[in-house]
């Protein structure tokens, strides 16, 4: 094993770059994820800064989506999934006993790869979270919240006359913005985005990317993307995953111009991935 080292398994035990920062919104330490016997994430530690956009890149199956789903405990819904280590949101361990996944997910929202509006009206899609959590006390407040959220997701002008038509009838890009609108309607602190534009055309993608930058003024955003250009365009920091290991984290500029790790360089220069 030791004498047959290929260029790919050079020192992947240590994350290169600057995984740790001050004033972190989320800090993950020594996270490991298992599906039954199979290990999907190895000893991963990273800090995610407040009001930043952090992009997670890496080849398919590298564990970036799995890691993302740990951040709002979405992996709880998969029975065979086990998580070790520690993830703190504002210095509270989100996997602690007293921590409630429902409350956590209200604080850490998520947008998925494929737009998944509920088969309800556009209005009800956006109002869903607020109604669940009892965030508004009357119809006027709710109307107001729906309008504001749609506005901030840049969708309101397109749908203001069709609020009671089904959300599934919108175009792909509009559906994705609807999903973003319904996420920000409950005013989370962090928004996780799992390849949010991979099912969209370039124009819709551009609209979403603009929206992300706009939203990062208020929210902390973690985005998983398979597009390095997207990571370069929107994120302040970029993390590179490889086969379940977090290889390198750094300012986006540094990662793309001066990667420390050979694997990162191979990936961003397009030698594989």
């Amino acid at each position: 094993m030791m004498n047959k080292r290929s260029e790919f398994d050079v020192e992947i035990n240590d994350t290169k770059g600057t995984p740790f920062i001050d004033n972190a919104k989320i800090s993950a330490r020594n996270v490991e994820v298992f599906y039954e016997k199979k290990q999907a994430i190895f000893n991963t530690s990273i800090d995610i800064g407040k009001n930043q956009i952090v992009a997670m890149i890496g080849p398919s199956g590298c564990g970036k989506s799995t890691f993302l789903r740990c951040l709002n405990r979405m992996n709880d819904t998969i029975q065979s999934c086990q998580i070790r280590g520690e993830i703190k949101l504002d210095n509270e361990d989100i996997y602690a006993r007293q921590q409630d996944p429902v409350l956590l997910r209200a604080r850490v929202g998520m947008v998925f790869q494929k737009p998944n509006p509920f088969s309800k009206s556009i209005y009800d899609n956006v109002a869903y979270g607020a109604k669940l959590h009892g965030l508004t006390s009357n119809q006027v407040e709710l109307d107001d919240l729906v309008e504001k959220s749609l506005m901030r997701a840049g969708l309101f002008n397109e749908v203001k006359d069709d609020l009671h038509k089904p959300g599934t009838g919108l175009s792909g890009g509009q559906q994705q913005r609807l999903c973003i609108a319904r996420t920000i309607a409950i005013d989370p602190e962090v928004i996780l985005m799992d390849e949010p534009t991979s099912a969209l055309d370039p124009i819709a993608t551009a609209v979403i990317e603009e929206l992300m930058i706009e939203l990062s003024k208020k929210y902390t955003i973690v985005i998983v993307t398979h597009s390095m250009q997207q990571a370069a365009r929107v994120s302040q920091r970029t993390a590179y995953f490889h086969m379940g290991h977090l290889i390198e984290v750094n300012d986006t500029n540094t990662v793309f111009t001066n990667p420390e790790h050979q694997l990162t360089e191979n990936y961003i220069t397009g030698r594989f991935g």
């Binding site: 709002n72 979405m74 819904t77 997910r105 929202g109 869903y128 319904r182």
Partner: peptide
């Protein structure tokens, strides 16, 4: 499953997801 995930990610409990989504 994506629709369920969407609901869970909003902080819905299982029964809320079932009944409302």
């Amino acid at each position: 499953q994506a629709m369920r995930d969407g609901s869970y990610a909003m902080g819905a409990t299982k029964s809320e997801t079932i009944r409302q989504v």
